[in-house]
Every structure is written in C-alpha cells, then in structure tokens.
Amino acid sequence: MTTKSSLNAAPRRFALINDRIITAPKEVVPVSVLRALASIAADQVLVRDHGSPNDMVLDDRATVDLNDGNVFYTRARCDATPPAACGSPAKLAFAVDDTFELSTAAELPFEAFMALFGLEAGKQLFRDFESPNDQPVAPGSVLRFKDGPVFYTRGGQHHDARVEITIDGVKHKVAPGKTSGADLKKIGNVPLADELIQNIGGKLTPLADDATLCIAGGEEFVSHPRCGASS
C-alpha cells in the first residue's frame, strides 16, 4: 500500500543545506536558486552529500533533481575537486514538523518512519501537500521519498484534527484553517465554472474562487451551474 497524493497537489519539498531546511519551489531546481535561498557565498560550492569522498560538486549553472537526493553541504571553492563518478547513493532527508532525519533508503515502512522520528504510535502523520485536504498516512503504508519528503503530525491517540464541512450534501473531512473557494470546489468535485455558495444559517453567500475562508468546521456549501435564464 502506498500513500496517495492529495487532489493532485504537488508535495512540499526541501533541500537540506548545511543542516538547514531550505524549502524548494519544485523538485527540479537550478543550483543558482538553491545558492540564493541558502545565501551561499560566492567562494563556496554546493556539494550533494553521498557520504563518499567523491561527493558530487555541483556546477553553479546546473540544475538538481531533489528526488535524486536532497542533502547538500558547502565547501570552499578552492578545495573543490572536479566532479568525479560517485557510486554511492545520495543521502535523503525527510522532515516531520520541521525537524529532519537522514536516510539512505528511498522507501520506509510507516512504522520504521515513525520510529525514526521518535513519534508515538497514536500520532496522525500527514504528507504535506499544502492542501486543506491533506490525508493522513495509513499505518502499514510504505513512505516513498519521491512522493514527497515533508510531513506533519496532528494529535495523539485516535485524535483527528480535521473538521467536517458539507458540500452539496456530502460531508468532507478537511484541515481547519484558511482555504479558498477554488480549493473547496476541488474538495467537493464541483466544476470550476459552477458557483459555490455558502449557506450561513439560511443566508446564501456566493464564494469567489479567490476568496479566502477560515474553515472551523460545520460550514455548508451548495454549488449550482449558473445555467438559468429568463424565458
């Protein structure tokens, strides 16, 4: 069993540079962007950590795929040796609640992953898709690095932090907090062209796609196709 993506949203990714978590905008990133995000001085080179004497020195003009390894360190440019073949697998960093752990295994069973981070068994683990509909990772799953290395936890034993909202008569469990009209349409499988309306005690309030709403639980929405016309 594997974990599923959340409504096709992109998982959050990061590069670990000198033991600092640097959030990456996407999985394939120019080295120059990582250098800028990590404020790397011009006299330093960025090196991908394979735990090998032949760790890969990255050309400033190259791009890196964080799926191939997201652990880096810097070294004085004058000490850097030309890139050589490196047969060792690159180190992989997973993050939970903004703390990281290293692994050379690209896949970890859920239970091993929880143990790696010292998380109690009752904690719910969510892969971070920056989506209001992040789904908890099920015990027994295999967590694959390439599916996204960033996670967060909620609650303790049997605690579910998500709240329930209703869209078109169907109940959905979502993370509380800010969400947009467009996100709610995705959650409710409402066509983007349809209008979403919030029912606030019988008062119907249209919700624009770019409107932001703070979900607390119990909100009710109705969509309609805007197809009516005077005859």
């Binding site: 008569g169 109705v222 309609h224 196709p225 805007r226 197809c227 009516g228």
Partner: peptide, 12 residues
C-alpha cells in the same frame, strides 16, 4: 439538479 441546487439556481 438536486433540490437545494434548484432553489439556489432560482434565488440567484
């Protein structure tokens, strides 16, 4: 359309 959608469609 569902019942609620009908009402909303008319009210809009």
């Amino acid at each position: 359309l569902r019942l609620a959608q009908m009402v909303v469609e008319h009210l809009c």
